[in-house]
């Protein structure tokens, strides 16, 4: 599938944003006084900005963006519609929590709103993944590792950005200082899990039996092997442009390695380095945390680019594709 930048940007930023909001919501569910006013508002604000930036980017992909409001109507059947609804709904707890953090709301209210935010963040990412996993026509997306991948990488992106924000506004709150051991372990665990999961995903799409073949696409397999000898058109059309994107094997291998390093070993090393640097040089620790966030985000972009570029659509079987 042709990797469209708007959609890659949307899924990565919205994933990181909801990962961040989920962790904030979860933290507030258990401790309403966990964040200082500035810290809490910054975290929620940055999460919301990521989400909104992603949503705006996704509308660039549309042919008629001025009608985008119509996309909220078909939540009964469409994951894309559900995603839109859940995403907008998540702004209710975001705004309410911001109000509480600013004015000092009732702790029970904050607990409830935190839980609601965490829940809606998960639901939204599940819907985003659902857009892709529901497509039987693209076996690399109709795959059991895709949903956990979206959830896990969103969490990793969220955790790494929380730490970067701590680095930016380290206000001496010992529980949420940039080098907090809790966050170090969380990041390391998520990175290890992401690394394992992406490896399992790639192994799965490389070894899966084809969902369809030129023989089943044409129904002519009973007569023998089917080979395309003449395409219907000499130039490209919408289908071959949108779905005929082919990534050279050797590039895929390299890019997979890059993505794996950026979302696996690198954040683990940088998370430990941040924790170790805090007593020696808090500034350096903060810089490491920010660098980790930027590098992991770059890794997520590579991962998401591959998610599109490597995915084959069964329609290409009609145009001489070997298997899908």
């Amino acid at each position: 599938m042709r990797p469209a930048f708007s959609v890659i940007f949307f899924t990565v930023m919205s994933g990181c944003g909801y990962g961040l909001l989920f962790l904030c919501g979860l933290a507030l569910t258990f401790d309403s006084a966990l964040f200082g006013r500035i810290e809490g508002l910054t975290l929620l604000g940055v999460g919301a900005v990521f989400v909104v930036a992603g949503l705006l980017a996704s509308t660039l992909h549309l042919g008629q963006p001025q009608r985008a409001w119509r996309a909220f109507s078909q939540w009964r059947s469409s994951w894309l519609s559900r995603e839109g609804v859940a995403s907008v709904a998540s702004f209710v707890p975001i705004l309410a929590l911001s109000w509480c953090l600013w004015h000092g709301g009732d702790p029970n209210g904050v607990h409830a709103l935190g839980a609601l935010l965490a829940l809606l963040a998960v639901i939204t990412v599940v819907c985003t993944a659902g857009i892709y996993t529901s497509l039987k026509t693209i076996p690399a997306w109709h795959n059991r590792f895709v949903l956990p991948g979206y959830l896990l990488l969103g969490l990793l992106g969220g955790a790494i950005w929380i730490r970067a924000l701590h680095g930016l506004l380290d206000d001496g709150n010992p529980r949420f200082a940039v080098g907090s051991p809790g966050l170090t372990w969380l990041i390391a665990t998520l990175a290890l899990a992401s690394w394992l999961l992406k490896r399992a995903y790639w192994n799965s799409i490389d070894t899966a039996p084809p969902a369809a073949t030129p023989e089943s696409a044409t129904g002519l397999g009973r007569f023998g092997a089917v080979r395309s000898v003449e395409a219907p058109h000499t130039e490209k059309n919408y289908l071959t442009h949108e779905m005929g994107f082919a990534l050279a094997r050797k590039h895929a291998v390299r890019l997979r390695a890059v993505a794996l390093i950026l979302i696996g070993p690198l954040p683990i090393v940088l998370a430990l380095a941040t924790a170790l640097l805090v007593p020696r040089s808090p500034t350096l620790a903060s810089c490491t945390a920010i660098a980790a966030a930027l590098l992991v985000t770059a890794g997520l972009f590579v991962e998401r680019w591959l998610f599109f570029a490597e995915a084959k659509h069964v329609v290409m079987l009609y145009y001489g594709g070997a298997r899908s």
Binding site: P214, T218, L220, F223, G224, A225, V226, R227, S228, V229, E230, A231, P232, H233, N237, Y318, Y319
Partner: peptide
């Protein structure tokens, strides 16, 4: 769209 295929038994 009209495709053409060759089928090798």
């Amino acid at each position: 769209r009209v495709h053409s295929y060759e089928i090798t038994p």
